[in-house]
Nucleic acid binder design. Sequence first.
DNA 1: CGCGTCCTTGAACTGATTCAATTGCGGTGG
DNA 2: CCACCGCAATTGAATCAGTTCAAGGACGCG
Lengths: 240, 240
Amino acid sequence: MTIENKLPPEQPAPCNACPILEYSLCLPLPARQRESLRSIARSRIVPQGQLIFEQGNEVVSFASIMTGVVKLLRTPPAGGSQIVAFMHPPEFIGYTFDKVHLYSAEAATDVEICIYPRDPFLALLGKSKKLSRSLFEAAAEELDSARKWRLTLGRVPAYQRVVGLLAKFAQHTRSDEGGALEFLLPASRSDLADYLGLTVETVSRNITILRQKGLIELKSAREVFVPNMDDLLAEADMIN
Amino acid sequence: MTIENKLPPEQPAPCNACPILEYSLCLPLPARQRESLRSIARSRIVPQGQLIFEQGNEVVSFASIMTGVVKLLRTPPAGGSQIVAFMHPPEFIGYTFDKVHLYSAEAATDVEICIYPRDPFLALLGKSKKLSRSLFEAAAEELDSARKWRLTLGRVPAYQRVVGLLAKFAQHTRSDEGGALEFLLPASRSDLADYLGLTVETVSRNITILRQKGLIELKSAREVFVPNMDDLLAEADMIN
DNA sequence: CGCGTCCTTGAACTGATTCAATTGCGGTGG
DNA sequence: CCACCGCAATTGAATCAGTTCAAGGACGCG
């Protein structure tokens, strides 16, 4: 059962307190269009583990991530399921004009999303050059990032992949300063392994190495403490 | 020196004989807009090996590939250069509103492209919902394909990567029927290796295996004969 | 003909996987 | 409160796929 099919708890969009205001789709819009967007937007809290939408289902809405992390999943014809991407605020989910979703989206942590119902959103998209442009740009950026990952995955050894991903998660908890920080991993070892194209064992071994080097500490399997973010970034060195 | 800076040989777009008419950006447009697009479009033949545009240079135009294969290259800060994508007709090159190109594009074979100068193209884009929509869809499709490749690169052994890429090239020479066909590889072994995240030696070895299995024959290093395309596709099995 | 470049092949090595066992932890029930 | 279960994560040892290093062959070009 996906979120989309359920009745409220939906809230009017809390634009005043929007956590992604300065990066969101809304920002570049002129006041009137921003108001239109606001009028169709609804916010919602999705608990960890819940599906937001499901591959193959009809597209009934798009969304922006306000807080939390979303897993994008693909179910290949062969069966099983693969993690396509981890998405963070203020990313947009549902790039498609198709009738059905290409991927499933699942809340990897508790997630707050801003939902735009499909038809009014597409109508607005038709009216607003600014909106379609910023959407397009966001898509182009993601394309770029997917391509970069494609390159690194082929080339980069396991250790660096792990460091890179941890660093990415860490950065999204506080993009400022380079001191110490602590965060909750939004994914299990097997999720990490799946995303990185490695085995669980390899991921685990490399996390151990990271620990031995003193770059991270683990309070529990999911609770990561980074004594010095700069060191971690230096180790990740230009992966993202 | 990139193509963009040179004076003609440019031709008015040969829309009547357009090789990609049925798939192109133009098709979905209403007659008037198609005419506008046509009026700004120019076709050009780029010889193998020549740069079409260069990473970091100012964007002066976009283009659709009409025939041939284009290599998209990225020059990482570290130096060197990596192959980001092989692009085929009717793909569009230059997804960005940025002022400068994110990648370099090089003709991997002789290539015919249909060029749209930046400013009039963007202006038209602002006027035509259909155009911006089909561009957006094309970008979303590429995003999808990049993501799929990202997944396979992490997971799939060398042999299948090689088969997959060869099959992709083969398909673009004749998308119909499943019989025998012959084509010219648009890339050297080291290009293939680079794109696949493998070494030259591994690529070579796997091509040898393919040959021993009778799935392909080589007249020369670049001339590939596929006795039975269906067999090759079966071997590639759902990579693309 | 000879040289350079690209491709192929071989053999040793290395990093990641596989298989197997152990540890650690949250939850349940005695 | 502790014993026990089940699942996730870690660790170890053997194996294997792909790399690295090194040498030889094919083709195009002067």
